[in-house]
Nucleic acid binder design. Structure first.
Lengths: 254, 254
DNA sequence: GTGTTCGCGCTCAACTTCGAGCAAATGAGC
DNA sequence: GCTCATTTGCTCGAAGTTGAGCGCGAACAC
């Protein structure tokens, strides 16, 4: 990859803050495909946030970016899932939430529920709930902070989770497969999810369509442990049948 | 979606508080449909409330405001104090931080310290440290969230604090007086501060000039419990003498 | 109440951009 | 020269964005 060109784009970003694919392509005498690839690389580095037609400089780089990017990926799907999922919540319930980016969309849709209690190990989510759910009581586990999930991990966290019995748990993970069930890439997070599942009456797995038929290396739980699976598109008949026979209620639009 | 345009609408909202579809459409040279779509997006984000013909900025949609206002009050003084205070920190130390708005200024000035450990009961501060102090390990107490301090309170919090021995504690409070020492208005916070003081080797009280000679109803600690007091102006001789005879080292500019 | 005006949301068509896949071009090492 | 890996440009189907048109309902004057 032409080091020069990417370097020039960096320079451009320093002064301009916002760059456009078509403009850079004209200026640097390369195709738009090439510019798009360059911008994808800069996004990967956490330097810019891309938008339709160009990219914008991220002013204050921080640990927040990887999480922010996960949150933005498949945004539409996650909104749909959040809206469907919150129908499962009733007033006065004790709700457990994990640190995933999908779950981060829930608070807004929980606004009209009264008198909830929330248990989470995500610092960011705890603050979001505090700001949006005025009638809720929010309990946060504490523990050592993970820059990956921007939440708490470790033995303290696990202990705190084990001390509570929640009515309903909303969680997500990287992947789900017929053979292995729910799997993820992060050892610590998987461990905490297991603890959360043990401590709740109903487990709801939030799962956009891209997560099906993928396998990550760390087992979280078998499909049988789930009570509900909420997704954004009708799963295949094979999956519907598999989930039904495992006793999982599947929720999807229409 | 053209990020630019939405960004411009945000700018407009900062000054105008109310925007109109027809006005924005004319100003930004796009159709009214497009503006309506943008406003719908901003409404989704919870930034505005739409009305027939336009949208209105939601002034302060969250619990964040009281804290935000405390943080902005005497900003200059707090910056000075933060810079002076962080000179007391050396690499590898275990630092305790409370939930006050003055302490919230510290992380930026701790950037050049290596290998710190942080203990705090503030969710916001924990996230700030995570983003700014890449080499630090951050422990957060957890507990029930207080909308007043945007941090954790309660028995769990107190217990977690009591489990750690820190090298240096930075904290603040509403007021300090010759007769009563450090006092505050919040029962729970005062209680946690006491616990933090018990668990640390050095206590540093951050105290802008407005806090002197005020009394709030809840006692936090006598002056003798402090090791350092950092302030933004030279205190009166009476105070300097009082603090010196109580064994408190006073730090102020010049 | 009635009528008028105007904004809203929806849909559709035109247009643009995106990203994956593939083949050509480039260039380093032998 | 040749080989291999990387980079680039092109194509094409999918997805995103925009503005115009239309029916509906809200706001307002009377």
């Amino acid at each position: 990859m032409g080091i020069d060109r990417v370097e020039l784009i960096r320079e451009e970003l320093k002064t301009k803050k916002v760059v456009y694919v078509h403009h850079l392509a004209d200026k640097l005498y390369v195709s738009r495909s090439t510019i798009r690839r360059d911008l994808a690389q800069l996004e990967q580095e956490g330097l810019v946030r891309r938008f339709y037609g160009g990219a914008k400089l991220i002013e204050h780089p921080s640990n927040e970016i990887p999480f922010f990017m996960r949150k933005e990926r498949n945004r539409a799907a996650k909104e749909i899932i959040a809206e469907l999922a919150t129908d499962l919540v009733t007033d006065n319930q004790f709700v457990a939430l994990d640190t995933t980016s999908t779950v981060a969309y829930l608070p807004r849709y929980l606004k009209d529920k009264e008198n909830l209690k929330i248990l989470t190990n995500s610092a960011q989510l705890a603050l979001d709930c505090l700001d949006q759910l005025h009638s809720a009581r929010i309990f946060c586990t504490g523990g050592w902070m993970s820059s990956f999930s921007r939440g708490f991990i470790g033995e303290t966290t696990r202990l705190r989770i084990s001390e509570y019995r929640t009515d309903i748990l909303f969680f997500s993970a990287r992947s789900i497969s017929l053979e292995e069930g729910v799997t993820d890439v992060n050892e610590e997070d998987a461990y905490l999810k297991q603890q959360m599942i043990r401590g709740t009456r109903k487990s709801v797995f939030l799962c956009d369509h891209t997560k099906f038929d993928e396998i990550s290396y760390r087992l979280v739980c078998p499909v049988q442990d789930l009570d509900y699976l909420v997704t954004d598109q009708r799963p295949s008949d094979k999956w519907l049948h598999h989930l039904e026979s495992a006793g999982v209620e599947v929720i999807f639009p229409e």
